[in-house]
């Protein structure tokens, strides 16, 4: 009986010490890890569309809850004034969710660029969305609130050849990004305008 109790006590004490230590470590490293994940996973996409920003958009971010989801917004400072936000929206592609990072100019409500963050499209067909800048450049300079569609669906976006499903998914994701932007416009503008590096 005594041995039994000792075993239980030893295991309980050891596990709780271990749990406590790891919990504390997790708390202290959490912020750094979030930054690292964003830098390596979303960083390249953000850099791509906020090219020439004076700040580090990954570090200068804020989050807002739009609808039910919490979204990260990355602020881009150009010529000394913060004027752009980049954020991510998703749509179902040919092979699962496709994530698109959209940068919007908050002064003009125009799209400054889009970039694909995550996708699982067919290599060589849909996956060319990663590099196909002609396709993605079609969105630049247009209103964030416009209803983007490919030409087949009555819109004015030329689909990538052979990859209509992927092109459609990108349009849907950009439309959703537009929805997020419209819904939270005033909050986003407040945050960006009050942003101090």
């Amino acid at each position: 009986m005594r041995e039994m109790i000792k075993m239980v006590v030893v295991l309980v004490v050891l596990s709780s010490l271990s749990g406590g230590l790891l919990g504390a470590l997790k708390n202290t490293t959490e912020e750094r890890i979030d930054n690292q994940v964003l830098k390596f996973v979303k960083g390249p996409a953000i850099e791509n569309i906020l090219k020439g920003a004076d700040n580090d958009p990954v570090a200068d971010r804020f989050s807002l809850t739009v609808g039910e989801k919490e979204n990260n917004f990355f602020v881009g400072v150009f010529d000394g004034t913060p004027k752009a936000v980049a954020f991510e929206a998703f749509a179902g592609g040919y092979g699962g969710d496709l994530g698109v990072m959209v940068a919007v100019n908050v002064k003009t409500d125009e799209i400054m660029g889009i970039s694909v963050t995550t996708h699982n499209e067919t290599p060589g067909i849909g996956a060319t969305v990663e590099t196909d800048s002609d396709f993605k450049n079609q969105f630049i300079g247009k209103s964030a609130a416009a209803a983007y569609k490919v030409k087949d669906d009555g819109g004015d976006i030329t689909a990538m050849s052979g990859a209509t499903v992927t092109s459609r998914a990108v349009c849907t994701a950009v439309r959703r990004a537009g929805d997020i932007y419209e819904k939270a416009k005033s909050q986003i503008k407040d945050q960006v305008n009050n942003f101090t590096g």
Binding site: L11, L14, S18, L21, L22, L25, T29, Q36, V37
Partner: peptide, 21 residues
């Protein structure tokens, strides 16, 4: 195993924070 797993998790967290690549 508890002791080893604790230290492995420590390594994992530190590596994530400082050497993500």
């Amino acid at each position: 195993i508890i002791i080893i797993a604790t230290f492995v998790t420590v390594v994992e967290l530190i590596m994530q924070a400082y050497a993500y690549q």
